[in-house]
Amino acid sequence: AMEMGLACVVCRQMMVASGNQLVECQECHNLYHRDCHKPQVTDKEANDPRLVWYCARCT
């Protein structure tokens, strides 16, 4: 999947907007926009540098 680069696995886009940054699952290393992931990634989750985030598939 490395050839995908830094794109969201849901929408396949790399564009990021304020409040909709890409977050990386620490287990599978897929990237998700906060708005694309279900459930939506919260501000607290996205902005906490100590948080280890896992996508819905890996939790």
Rank of each mutant, 00 (worst) to 15 (best):
A1W: 05
V16Y: 06
C55V: 00
C25S: 01
A1N: 15
A17H: 12
W53M: 03
H33K: 02
C25D: 01
C11M: 00
C25Y: 00
Y32H: 03
N30H: 10
M15Y: 11
Q40K: 10
V10N: 05
W53N: 07
Q26T: 09
C25G: 01
P39G: 03
Q40L: 10
E27C: 07
Q21L: 09
V41H: 01
D48V: 09
D43I: 08
M2G: 12
V16Q: 11
E24S: 04
C55H: 00
V9H: 10
G5E: 14
M4A: 10
R57V: 08
M2S: 14
K44H: 06
A46R: 08
N47I: 07
E45P: 04
K44P: 08
N47S: 13
L31C: 14
C55G: 00
G5Q: 15
Y32V: 05
D43T: 08
E27A: 10
N20K: 13
P49G: 14
L51Y: 05
R50E: 13
D35K: 08
H29V: 02
A46Y: 10
L31V: 13
H37L: 06
A1D: 15
V52C: 11
G19D: 13
G19H: 08
P39Q: 02
V23Y: 10
V23I: 12
N30E: 07
P39H: 02
P49A: 10
E45T: 09
L22K: 12
Q21R: 12
A7R: 10
L51N: 05
M15C: 13
V10G: 04
C36M: 01
V23A: 05
C28E: 00
E3R: 03
T59Q: 05
Y32F: 12
K38C: 08
V16P: 12
V9A: 10
D35M: 14
T59C: 04
A7D: 11
V9N: 04
D35T: 13
C55Y: 00
Q40D: 09
V16W: 06
L6W: 02
G5S: 12
P49N: 05
N47D: 08
A56W: 06
K44D: 15
D35Y: 08
V9E: 05
Q21G: 11
L6V: 13
V41C: 03
E24F: 02
H33V: 01
Q26I: 06
E24Q: 08
R12L: 07
A17F: 04
L22P: 07
Q21W: 04
D43K: 05
V16K: 13
R57W: 05
C36G: 02
M15W: 05
N47K: 10
M15N: 14
D43W: 05
Y54K: 15
G5D: 14
R34V: 11
Q26L: 07
A56C: 11
P39N: 06
K44I: 13
V10F: 04
C58A: 00
W53I: 03
L22S: 11
E45D: 12
Y54C: 14
S18A: 13
C58L: 01
A56V: 06
P49Q: 09
N47M: 07
C36I: 01
R34K: 15
T42I: 03
G19K: 14
Q26R: 11
M2I: 14
V23P: 02
V9K: 03
R12A: 08
E3W: 02
M14T: 13
D48T: 13
R57C: 08
Q40Y: 03
A56K: 05
V41P: 04
Q40R: 10
N30D: 15
C25L: 00
E45N: 08
M15T: 14
N30P: 01
M2N: 07
V9Y: 06
M2F: 09
A17M: 09
C25N: 01
A46P: 04
D43Q: 06
V52F: 06
S18R: 09
C28K: 01
P49L: 07
T42M: 06
R50T: 14
Q26S: 10
M14K: 15
N30G: 13
R34E: 11
C8R: 01
R57S: 11
T59V: 04
L51T: 14
N47T: 08
C36H: 02
R34H: 08
A1R: 09
M14H: 11
L31I: 12
G5C: 06
R12C: 09
L31N: 13
C11A: 00
T59A: 13
Q21K: 06
Q26Y: 11
D35A: 14
H29W: 02
C28G: 02
P39D: 03
C11G: 00
G5R: 09
H37G: 06
L31R: 15
A1E: 06
K44L: 07
C11S: 00
L22Q: 03
C55W: 00
L6D: 15
K44W: 03
E45H: 06
Q13L: 08
R50I: 04
H33Q: 01
C28V: 00
G19W: 03
R12S: 14
A56G: 09
W53G: 03
L51E: 14
K38S: 13
H37P: 01
C28Q: 01
L31Q: 15
C8M: 00
E27W: 04
T59Y: 04
R57G: 14
A46C: 06
L22M: 12
V52K: 15
P49M: 09
A56T: 09
E3Y: 04
V23C: 07
R50W: 04
A56H: 10
R57E: 11
N47L: 09
Q26W: 07
G19A: 10
H37E: 04
P39T: 08
L22T: 08
L6G: 10
W53R: 06
E3K: 08
R57Y: 04
M2Y: 06
L22G: 12
M15R: 13
V41G: 04
C36K: 01
R50Q: 09
C11V: 00
Q13T: 08
N30M: 11
Y32C: 04
V52W: 02
G5F: 03
M14C: 12
Q40S: 11
D48I: 05
V23E: 03
V41E: 03
M2D: 05
R12V: 02
C25Q: 02
V41R: 03
D48A: 07
A46E: 09
L51M: 09
G5L: 04
V9T: 11
C11Y: 00
M15P: 15
Y32S: 03
P49E: 13
H37A: 10
V52Q: 07
T59K: 10
R34I: 11
Y32A: 06
L51W: 07
